[in-house]
């Protein structure tokens, strides 16, 4: 993708509301984008700028391409950055919270667990589980990395992760897991599934971020173009950390 000389490559979500909102951010920075060859194409450009290329990708692909330095800048959720990029702070920098795509990654247990309100309670339950049930406590989640990190910080190691490929919130009632770690924006899906969030069970408060890649090739004018973009956003009152960005540009 960055093969075309010294183009600044910006990755934007390829569909839906996120795409519209990301496009609005770029417009606010004075970079109106358009798709090449109709709406089904996955490449685009900034009107009137030959030095910038737009890549339309799924949000999780954006995180991956940022990690490997294939794109310079991307718009994606912090949850995906933290989940899919190993050692994310060393490979990307989150330079601006964008104020949309809000969602929390949370630990939720059956609301019938009236004895469990905190991670400390969960630690007790996890510790006695093997002796009582002949197996470890099971957690259904798509967020392996975030779950492992969060539980480790709370000193809990005695559990097993059950892979969940969708409808995670149904896993406890179906007997596939005891609790879940999942993303929620309004909490209504959890309530509908008789699950409650632990008091200290917010793993991550996520939203869409402007993310820059530390591994991308920042030579030949790309850093300058990115700097101009960030300064324009900052001028439009986006909370850009220019300092964090400069640390990447070198």
């Amino acid at each position: 993708m960055s093969g075309s000389g010294n183009c600044l490559v910006i990755a934007v979500p390829s569909k839906g509301r996120l795409q519209e909102q990301a496009a609005a951010v770029l417009t606010a920075a004075g970079l109106p984008i358009e798709k090449l060859g109709g709406s089904r194409n996955y490449r685009g450009r900034v009107i009137g700028r030959d030095d910038i290329e737009i890549a339309f990708l799924s949000a999780s692909e954006i995180a991956h391409e940022l990690a490997t330095g294939q794109v310079h800048i991307g718009v994606t959720g912090e949850d995906l950055v933290r989940e899919t990029i190993v050692d994310s702070d060393r490979r990307v920098s989150l330079v601006c919270r964008l104020g949309f795509g809000h969602a929390d990654v949370v630990v939720a247990v059956p609301d019938a667990w009236i004895d469990v309100h905190t991670m400390e309670d969960l630690d007790d339950v996890a510790a006695g589980f093997l002796a009582r049930h002949g197996r470890r406590l099971r957690i259904a989640t798509k967020y392996w990395t975030l779950t492992q990190g969060f539980f480790a910080r709370h000193g809990i190691a005695l559990y097993r992760i059950v892979e969940s490929l969708g409808a995670t919130e149904g896993a406890p009632a179906a007997g596939k897991a005891d609790l879940i770690v999942d993303i929620t924006s309004t909490g209504s899906t959890l309530v509908a599934n008789h699950l409650k969030i632990l008091q200290d069970g917010v793993v991550l408060r996520s939203e869409a971020n402007l993310v820059i890649s530390r591994g991308a090739d920042w030579s030949g004018g790309t850093a300058g173009a990115a700097r101009a973009l960030l300064e324009a956003l900052s001028g439009s009152h986006y909370p850009v950390s220019l300092q964090a960005a400069e640390a990447v540009f070198g």
Binding site: P110, A112, W113, I114, D115, D124, V125, R132, H133, L137, R138, P172, A173, A174, G175, A177, D178, H194
Partner: peptide
């Protein structure tokens, strides 16, 4: 009532710990 087919933690266990 909430449709738990096979609750890992039983009502007895939850009540006891509570």
């Amino acid at each position: 009532a909430q449709g738990y087919l096979d609750p890992g933690r039983s009502a007895t266990e939850i009540a006891e710990r509570y």
